[in-house]
Computed example of a mutant assay.
Amino acid sequence: MATLHGADAETVREALERGEPLPGTAGFAGEIDGKLVRDVLGREPLFLEGTEATATGETEDDAWAFEPTALEDPTPVPAGGVVDADEAGRVVPADVERRWTLPDPDPEPDHETALEALDDAIRTATDTARTAEREIAVAFSGGVDSALVAELLDAPLYVVGFPDSHDVEAARTAAEAMGRELTVVELEPADLERAVPEIVRATGRTNAMDVQIALPLYLVGERVAADGYDALAVGQGADELFGGYEKVVRLDHRVDAETTRGAVREQIRSLPDQLPRDVLTIRATGLEPVAPLLHDRVVEAALRLPDDLLADAETRKRAFRQVASRYLPEEVAMRDKKAVQYGSLVARELDRLARQNGYKRRMDDHVSKYVASLLENEVEGEGEVEDE
């Protein structure tokens, strides 16, 4: 079994020695030279066994893993963290050394310089993704993020959603504008019921929001894998890096920062909690995730963007859209999008299934309760088969 994911050992070793948080990788995690490491954005999952499990001797396995389901009481290694491998299972996250922290460079005052740096970084990231010996398809929603990834990777496009969903229609019109073919993966409610237990097992998460976000990734990944591809490219990270959320402009109660740039940094810091869900979901389909917009070089360029190239009241992700318009039709580069769980109608249909099965909206967190019931029902069914 590989002990280091996402980057070669020499690159990670040098990053440790120099304290370099963005050493030119797409993320990494694992064991090297007796240390457990996880990159500064947590792009690769890594978990420690909880101290209670190891203290009581409930597990005899290794005290760390890349998947939460391999441990009795998995606890994520904090992004940027370094732990002595011998201490795994005996430390809590608060005590983990943070070897790397997110850089805080001054903004680039010249707009053209900032845009050229971002363009170069995105091209570097997609060129790097293409050089790997793997067949890549793109999870395509018709929005600017996945469209730019698809254009620069020149990879096949797949969209997933219910027949009347926003994402399916948006992907069709965007693919037509780009002169590209599109494979549509149309969903029905039974697909959600079947996939939910697989996602929960892979990610260790049962809350409704995480499952709703993971479902489209899992279901499109299934089809991509069945069609013979090795990897699934996604546009993840663009909203966090480039100012894609309304709250970074409004600066309301949802953020602590007083500037758009500060609010964007807050969103970037949320990535280590989100990304393991997506990575583990895609890998559960047998595919390797590819996220060019989360490459170190892109992150570096994004961190140098000034407020007025991030977002304003009229346009969000301003710099990113300006770069994208160099490669995409204007209508695609400037298009707004819906979050995948809403654009695909997965959230609506999962809510409907929950209510049909007796989990009414008046119940607290009714969809999460329904998700848990699907897993319980499957476990009970497996037990009945074993009894026979």
Score class of each variant (00 low, 15 high):
A2S: 14
T3H: 10
G6I: 04
A9N: 03
E10S: 14
E14W: 06
G19P: 06
P21E: 08
A26G: 14
A26K: 01
G27E: 09
G34N: 03
V37A: 03
R38N: 02
R38A: 04
R38Q: 02
R38W: 00
V40M: 04
V40Y: 07
L41W: 00
G42Q: 05
G50P: 03
E52M: 05
A55P: 05
T56S: 13
G57K: 09
G57S: 06
E58F: 08
D61Y: 08
D62E: 13
A63V: 07
A63C: 11
P68I: 00
T75E: 09
A88P: 11
V92N: 08
E97C: 01
R98Y: 00
D104K: 02
P107Y: 12
E112V: 04
A114N: 05
A121P: 13
R130C: 08
A137W: 07
A137N: 09
S141E: 07
G142C: 01
D145Q: 12
V149S: 10
V149R: 07
E151A: 15
L153V: 13
P156I: 10
L157E: 07
G161T: 00
H166F: 14
D167H: 04
A170V: 00
A177C: 08
L182P: 07
T183V: 09
V184T: 14
D191H: 11
E193F: 00
E193R: 13
R194Q: 06
P197K: 05
T203D: 11
T206A: 08
T206K: 01
N207E: 15
A208V: 05
D210G: 14
D210I: 00
Q212Y: 04
A214S: 15
L217F: 15
Y218I: 05
L219W: 02
V220F: 10
V224F: 03
A225S: 01
A226M: 00
A233Q: 10
A233S: 12
Q236N: 08
A238Y: 07
G244F: 08
Y245V: 05
K247G: 00
R254S: 12
V255Q: 05
T259D: 06
I268P: 05
S270I: 08
P272C: 09
D273I: 11
L275I: 10
L275F: 02
R277K: 15
L280G: 13
I282S: 09
G286D: 01
A291S: 14
P292T: 01
L294A: 10
H295N: 13
V299H: 04
P306W: 13
A311N: 14
D312R: 07
T315A: 04
T315M: 10
R316F: 02
R316W: 05
R316N: 15
F320N: 03
S325G: 06
R326T: 10
P329E: 12
V332C: 12
R335A: 10
K338F: 12
Q341Y: 01
G343Y: 03
E349R: 13
L350G: 11
R352Y: 06
N357L: 01
N357C: 04
G358D: 06
D364R: 13
S368H: 04
K369S: 11
Y370R: 12
A372Y: 03
S373R: 15
L374S: 13
E382G: 11
D387G: 04
E388Y: 15
